[in-house]
Computed example of a mutant assay.
Amino acid sequence: MKIDPVTYEVDMSAGTHPLYVWEAPVRVWHWAMMVCMFVMIATGFLIGAPMVANLGDTWATYDFAYIRFAHFAAGMIYTVLFIYRLYWAAVGNKYSRQIFIPPLWSWKWWKGVFGQVAYYLFMKKTSAEYAGHNPLAQLAMFGFFVLGSIVLIVTGLALYAQAWGWDVYWMSWFGWVFTLFGDAQAVRTVHHAFMYVMIIFTIAHMYMSFREDIMGGCTTLSSMTTGLRMFKHTGGEH
Rank of each mutant, 00 (worst) to 15 (best):
T16C: 01
H17W: 03
H17V: 00
P18W: 03
L19A: 05
V21F: 05
V21E: 06
V21K: 07
W22S: 07
W22F: 04
A24Q: 13
P25L: 07
V26S: 14
V28L: 13
W29R: 07
H30Y: 14
H30W: 10
W31A: 10
A32R: 00
M33Q: 14
M34S: 15
M34Y: 10
M34Q: 11
M37N: 11
F38N: 08
F38A: 14
V39P: 08
V39N: 09
V39Q: 06
V39Y: 07
M40P: 11
I41P: 10
I41F: 11
A42N: 04
T43G: 07
G44H: 05
G44P: 11
G44R: 02
F45I: 12
L46C: 03
I47W: 03
I47D: 03
I47T: 05
G48D: 04
A49Y: 06
A49R: 02
A49H: 10
P50H: 01
M51H: 00
V52S: 09
L55I: 01
G56F: 03
D57G: 12
D57P: 04
D57T: 04
T58V: 10
T58Y: 06
W59Q: 03
W59D: 10
W59S: 07
A60R: 00
T61N: 11
T61H: 00
D63L: 09
F64I: 03
A65Y: 05
R68L: 10
R68Y: 01
R68P: 03
F69E: 02
F69K: 09
F69S: 10
A70E: 04
H71M: 05
A73W: 06
A73L: 14
G75E: 09
G75M: 10
G75R: 07
M76D: 13
M76A: 15
I77N: 05
Y78L: 12
T79H: 06
L81M: 15
L81W: 12
L81F: 12
F82P: 15
I83D: 13
I83H: 11
Y84E: 15
Y84F: 15
L86C: 14
L86G: 15
L86F: 15
Y87D: 14
Y87A: 15
W88P: 12
A89C: 13
A89H: 12
A89K: 11
G92E: 13
G92S: 13
N93G: 06
K94W: 00
K94V: 05
Y95R: 03
Q98N: 09
Q98K: 04
Q98S: 08
I99T: 10
I99Y: 09
I99M: 15
I101P: 00
I101V: 09
P102N: 05
L104E: 00
L104D: 00
L104I: 01
L104T: 01
L104G: 01
W107C: 06
K108E: 11
W109A: 06
W110I: 09
W110T: 04
W110F: 08
W110E: 09
G112P: 05
G112W: 00
G112M: 01
V113E: 02
